[in-house]
């Protein structure tokens, strides 16, 4: 065997590592983005999901103030995981409204009592109708809605601590 052939495996492997590293460093958009971004919220008028917060309708978004619309459910574990981040956003003065998906009032109340209640309004979406109309495919998801009721940004999955400042910037951008 020639000496140089002994280095062929290492060279091939280096090539593989280079490719794999380059692939990993590329951002991958594997989420299904809502086609509703840039469009107005659909018309809806949901009943209140709990006794101690008002209900939610499209007209509540038209007051000129940007806010977050959080899609959550009491039966969803990542929703509990993002609760501290929502609370942090609320303390920074962000108005957060929510849609509770396929939930019971008692369960929602118990969930909020346990993990905190950062919401100013909570609508109950018993059949995921509003959820589907705004282009959300799971829980939790968070939308940035501008003061005219137009969907500006969609965050899929739970809000991680690193996402808080990103969401604040997005809200600032649409002001």
């Amino acid at each position: 065997m020639k000496r140089w052939t002994l280095w062929v495996p290492l060279a091939l492997f280096a090539l593989f590592c280079a490719f794999a590293g380059w692939q990993l460093s590329r951002p991958k958009d594997e989420f299904v983005e809502s086609t509703m971004i840039g469009k107005a919220l659909p018309e809806f008028d949901l009943r209140a999901a709990t006794a101690d917060r008002p209900a939610l309708a499209t007209r509540d978004f038209l007051d000129g103030k940007p806010r977050l619309l959080n899609v959550f459910a009491s039966w969803c574990v990542p929703c509990a995981a993002e609760a501290p981040q929502l609370e942090a956003l609320r303390r920074r003065g962000v108005d957060i409204v929510a849609v509770a998906i396929r939930d019971r009032p008692d369960d929602v109340a118990a969930f909020l009592a346990r993990y905190g209640n950062p919401y100013s309004r909570i609508g109950a979406d018993d059949l995921s109708e509003v959820q589907l109309e705004i282009g959300s495919s799971g829980v939790p998801e968070t939308f940035v809605i501008d003061g005219k009721g137009i969907i500006r940004y969609q965050h899929i999955g739970d809000i991680r601590p690193g996402d808080v400042s990103m969401l604040l910037t997005k809200l600032e951008d649409v002001r």
Binding site: R3, L6, P9, L10, F13, A14
Partner: peptide
């Protein structure tokens, strides 16, 4: 691991 082992192979297998 793999790179190290293959490097060792290149150095020693000769």
């Amino acid at each position: 691991y793999i790179g190290g082992a293959l490097l060792l192979f290149g150095l020693r297998a000769g």
